[in-house]
Design a protein around this nucleic acid. Structure first.
Lengths: 228, 228
DNA sequence: CGGCGTCCTTGACTTAAGTCAATAAAACCC
DNA sequence: GGGTTTTATTGACTTAAGTCAAGGACGCCG
């Protein structure tokens, strides 16, 4: 297992910190490990620190009383999460669950806030992280409110294509029911939309591999939000 | 018109700053005024600073190609907005429009970032503001994805009741079509839901005044997301 | 290799909410 | 105050997406 300082120095949040600052940051961290399926924190819990992901994968989600889930984020290597309670003093607004065996670094609130006082560029990094996340949320709200499911799926596929730097094939890293929950729908509907989009020669579905047959068509659908 | 320092000293974002720091902050501000309906910035514009509201009211929203709007926030006195480009270097993710005659203070990016370097507690304040906004967005996503329109309207009315500190009557400060856009629906649907909720003896609608007849019923509806 | 469980798909049906259109009610403005 | 514009309501209809239920594919483990 790598040391905390090795991990931190490769985490975007701590880019631009000097050797000395990195040492101080790593000194306050606590390593925590979770099995697949384990809950890291629940909506409503008080938070006394935040986390960054060393390995594995974490989903952040809300649940309706009827059990339907809405995924807010899926985070992977290097990404921080659970910061809201650190800066608001209010409880976690959502639940975090490991969706694979996961290693985390935990940053206790008081120690981290003290570091910010000594090191304003750490604050600016964190402001950047939170601002970017606000930006992502505006996109998610736009998708939920202004686009139908085919439009949301198109955006998601194009986003994956960008992320995976592959213009014509994307691999779905999470199960289709998790994708449904991320897109604000249910597995049955998502399955039907995959079929429809394949029939419209926009994509070809082979299990978890999706070929993007008509990027322009997908972009159009993602933009306009409606099929046809 | 009040001086910038008077205004700033009453803005929550700058609470906890000393006399000296307040003077420095106020020194970098620029006063800007907008007429009702005027666009302050548009989605995609580069931002070189953020704003706080001195007087009036601003809506932040996204528009679909077909013209449907989704309101993300409605901000009033003392509230900051437009921070995302300051900390990410990316363009505005949404559009801001004055929905009344509005006076703003503008904080240029570079000067503000310099102030943060001198004054880490300003950074912590800003982190608090952004974190709170993330929290609000998770609620909005939950509402859009997991609740039907009656549930969203109930939450909204209860939220207004809290804000106005009046347990049995709320005043709608914005038009019903703006509320529709805030709740992710259209005026026709909202109008029907008002009628249904009145028929279910949950509320009584008298123009822009809503009497909350059955708080428990409303809470239940807001919680469960479904009528009946 | 075979059986079990999870995930995915498909079909028939229901329903919440959107569309289009017409009217009613407010707000606005000389 | 009357006429104009915006905003709100109501009705008839359409549609996207959810529900319920059944069957199929796939991977996993003994």
């Amino acid at each position: 297992m790598k040391t905390a300082i090795e991990i931190i120095s490769k985490t975007p949040l701590f880019n631009g910190l000097g050797e000395e600052a990195l040492r101080k940051v790593s000194a306050i961290t606590v390593r925590k490990d979770y099995d697949k399926g384990q809950i890291i924190f629940s909506e409503g819990d008080a938070g006394n620190g935040f986390y960054t992901i060393v390995s594995g994968r974490v989903k952040i989600f809300k649940v309706a009383p009827d059990g339907k889930e809405q995924i807010l984020h899926i985070f992977g290597h290097g990404e921080p999460f659970g910061e809201v309670p650190v800066f608001t003093g209010r409880p976690f607004p959502a639940t975090a669950q490991a969706i694979a065996g996961t290693g985390l670094l935990f940053f206790p609130k008081t120690a981290f806030v003290a570091l910010i006082h000594q090191n304003p560029s750490l604050a600016l990094s964190m402001l950047g992280v939170l601002s970017l996340r606000l930006r992502e949320f505006t996109v998610q709200i736009e998708n939920l409110s202004l686009k139908e499911v085919p439009g949301r799926l198109s955006s998601y596929l194009l986003y994956l294509s960008d992320e995976q730097e592959n213009p014509d094939t994307v691999k779905l890293a999470i199960s289709k029911s998790q994708i449904a929950s991320l897109l604000g729908t249910i597995p049955e509907t998502l399955s039907r939309i995959f079929t429809k989009m394949a029939a419209a020669r926009l994509i070809r579905v082979q299990g978890g591999d999706i070929r993007l047959l008509d990027r322009c068509g997908l972009e159009d659908l993602a933009e306009n939000g409606k099929l046809q």
